[in-house]
């Protein structure tokens, strides 16, 4: 087997940032954010069952949702969604043959833009603008 062939034995390499090309780092970020967002999707669907339980159950949950711990969790979801979305747009463009020659620069540019948007959301969420 070639050293780079897919294998479950190579899974732990995802957690080792050393000696990685920028393309591999982009790939790892995409996979990790995907796993995180999938866990969130399942939790979100479970939590939405409160809506079926009626107004009181949902409104009680909303009080809990305003706690700092939940807000920090929401911030991770927003960050994961923005990073995964921006990285995904790059993958789609490159896969269809667009901007392939500048894919590294595109990745760096999109990640800087993502960080700026995450920062905006962070300030908006924690400054009390959205209570």
């Amino acid at each position: 087997m070639n050293n780079n062939d897919p294998s479950s034995h190579h899974f732990l390499r995802w957690f080792d940032p050393r000696h990685k090309s920028i393309g591999t780092i982009a790939f790892i970020i995409n996979r990790f954010s995907a796993l995180g967002l999938t866990v969130y999707l399942i939790l979100h669907l479970v939590v939405l069952s409160k809506l079926a339980s009626g107004g009181q159950a949902y409104d009680e949950f909303l009080i809990l949702a305003k706690s700092p711990v939940i807000k920090i969790g929401e911030m991770f979801v927003i960050a994961g969604g923005i990073i995964h979305g921006a990285n995904g747009v790059r993958i789609a463009l490159n896969s269809f043959g667009f901007l392939v020659k500048i894919q590294k620069e595109l990745f760096i540019g999109l990640m800087i833009l993502s960080l700026a948007i995450i920062f905006y959301f962070g300030v908006h969420m924690f400054s009390g603008a959205q209570n």
Partner: peptide, 26 residues
């Protein structure tokens, strides 16, 4: 994936620009 990006953009515009307070209650 690309469709979700478009949907999410609409979601943020509706929830944060048109209804800045968001959907707060049942």
């Amino acid at each position: 994936g690309l469709s979700i990006v478009i949907f999410l953009a609409i979601h943020f515009i509706v929830n944060h620009l048109i209804a800045p307070e968001g959907l707060l209650s049942y």
